[in-house]
């Protein structure tokens, strides 16, 4: 299950830096704690409690497949799938908008279902298959939905676009693109502050009516 992704290469360095930082925090945190702590607790700490404190927050092993590439990672439990994709796998196509599940810019597919990656803890998707915007095109051949967004001008600033496209693909796959009304309802989790909605709807309708597999 070794990763084939280029970002795997500098992982050793990252791990080294990460563990150094953690060791530093662990030790400096312990010194601060000892300075502020009553004597009985200090002696308890000296008996190895600090190791237990460090153990509490150990990283968790996570294996997942992103755009067909398998990864073995070790992450803090608080890391979201969004941050994992962007910061650790360097897949920055998935965007951080609100980071609170209100805008949809971070939409990815987990085992084929669209979710907000900003509210998904990385540890909860271990063993699952993730598809991001980088995983839609086949080499230089854009996905039909990407083509349609370009053709219909389905964006202005483009920041929400990766999330819009991931959602649009899911919208058709789920069978919820049968009318303008239905598309608007089932795309409501993706906010576009430029207001490209009419063109986004047109793009989705064209792909739906074109009947090509998405």
């Amino acid at each position: 299950m070794k990763s084939k992704n280029p970002p795997e290469e500098p992982a050793h360095e990252n791990n080294f830096l990460e563990s150094s930082r953690r060791d530093f925090l662990k030790h400096s945190g312990l010194l601060t704690a000892i300075a502020l702590t009553p004597a009985p607790l200090v002696s308890a700490a000296q008996k190895g409690f600090d190791e237990k404190i460090a153990d509490l927050y150990e990283k968790v092993p996570v294996s997942l497949e992103v755009n067909g590439v398998k990864h073995q990672l070790s992450i803090e439990p608080r890391v979201t799938l969004l941050d994992l994709l962007r910061e650790q796998l360097e897949l920055t196509g998935t965007k951080k908008g609100c980071d609170h599940g209100q805008c949809g810019a971070c939409t990815v597919h987990v085992d084929g279902h669209r979710v907000n990656s900003c509210l998904t803890l990385g540890v909860l998707v271990s063993g699952k298959k993730i598809t991001t915007i980088e995983g839609l095109a086949k080499g230089d051949q854009l996905h039909p939905m990407q083509e349609a967004f370009i053709k219909h001008d389905g964006f202005q600033c483009g920041y929400c676009t990766p999330g819009q496209i991931m959602s649009a693909v899911a919208c058709i796959r789920e069978g919820h693109a049968n009318s303008e009304h239905e598309i608007r309802e089932y795309m409501s989790g993706n906010i576009c502050r430029c207001g490209a909605y009419p063109n986004i709807v047109n793009a989705i309708q064209e792909v739906k009516e074109g009947g090509q597999p998405v």
Partner: peptide, 9 residues
């Protein structure tokens, strides 16, 4: 309730 993405979670 919510959005399709949130309902999937």
């Amino acid at each position: 309730g919510a959005s399709p993405q949130l309902r999937n979670m």
